[in-house]
Design a protein around this nucleic acid. Structure first.
Lengths: 216, 216
DNA sequence: AGAGTCACCGCATATCTATGCGGTTTCTAA
DNA sequence: TTAGAAACCGCATAGATATGCGGTGACTCT
């Protein structure tokens, strides 16, 4: 099965460069190459793309907005963003909005080809240091928090998890076979250790520092 | 510069298979191959590894615990986990505990080699569908929530953000130049839209669905 | 001109929360 | 054996919260 790709890139030379990379390869079918999102989305064939290779810095609708649109309208299309910016915020913005890959323009033609193949077959192509950043975002910030921020005991973690579900003292008590005052006891300590004064702050901090997982 | 690798894998055949992959390549120096974490961590040379290739299902200390230990004790070592399990929980557990790569054992020798090289040079090797899962975890669940879950108005988002900081009605009111009852008004609507009944649930949901960002 | 949505304000009240201070037991490490 | 942490339990109380019902004015779309 051939891989149908569409290209969205405002710079003519880059666009034609990409075209020149894929055109000679029989495995690829190029559905279209557009200078901006608006043109692309108007096109009939665009919707049947397997992969869209898109720039971020586009005139009019940006690549970030574009990827959002595509992932809502055509959830089956794999959008790969390609940009000169190795900027954390842009990367995570792009990923949050539905991009399944993120490449830098300095990529070689060979890597670009294998990236698009990967995107078409269920992978998520990223340049190495972007992959590393993405992975790093999962790491607990154990490094940067010398304060005893998160030495929660097991029991305290259990309680914090139930707090995150919005349960009341008595609901937590029932679930954990504790008295209401027993629950209070743990919550006090959670507040101390996290240095907060309300359950909401505790939950926000617990989620941010990945001490607990989001409910459901 | 050569790449110093250590191997931790209980299955003798797999272990020797890996050895056989790396030994003939002059670019790699194998510091040791161990059947379990305990043996590995006792070894003198272990600490100077560039990359550790480790199984998850180990007797005694598991690969997950192992990676946690390594990333705390030797933060500069890149730990790549390798396993037969394509299990979401394991993957994210591993990443949260400091793994910088996650491979499946069905990987080819060539891919294994390039993965280790990538790990040594700042990348994060993952098999394609794991990469996809990791990326997918960033996506808003806009797809699976046709309920009006997140059509919060701007004002409501402002309020929700302050909620996440643990502010009280009156504190929010002051900051937003609202009366206490005005704040209540918005919070009511937030609860309705998010289908929750407490501020804590609202914040947890808001953070999970990335409607709001974690405070600070 | 009427309907709908948004942004507000007000009041009442049962319930929940935060925090103070007091206690017991069990386990572990010095 | 003494000290510390952890896991409980109890009581008191000011204050915060959730939720009910009632309003007004501004703006937009039809």
């Amino acid at each position: 099965m051939k891989i149908a790709i569409s290209i969205v890139e405002d710079n003519r030379f880059v666009r034609e460069g990409w075209l020149a990379v894929f055109e000679p390869i029989p495995e690829f079918v190029i559905l279209g190459a557009y200078a901006n999102c608006e043109d692309a989305f108007e096109s009939e064939q665009f919707g049947v793309s397997d992969v869209v290779l898109m720039d971020i810095g586009l005139p009019g609708m940006s690549g970030i907005e574009g990827v959002r649109y595509v992932s809502e309208k055509f959830p089956d299309i794999a959008v790969v963003l390609c940009t000169v910016f190795d900027d954390d915020k842009k990367i995570f913005d792009a990923l949050c909005n539905g991009a399944i890959g993120y490449l830098l323009k300095k990529i070689t033609a060979d890597d670009l080809i294998s990236s698009i193949k990967s995107a078409a077959s269920g992978g998520s192509p990223m340049t190495p240091n972007i992959a590393r950043k993405v992975i790093a975002s999962f790491q607990k910030p154990i490094f940067k928090s010398p304060p005893k921020t998160e030495n929660l005991t097991e029991r305290e973690q259990e309680v914090l998890n139930l707090l995150a579900q919005g349960k009341s003292y008595s609901a937590i008590g029932k679930q954990l076979y504790l008295s209401v005052d027993g629950v209070r006891y743990h919550i006090r300590h959670i507040y101390e250790k996290l240095q907060v004064h309300t359950r909401t702050q505790a939950v926000a901090k617990g989620l941010k520092d990945r001490i607990i997982q989001p409910p459901r």
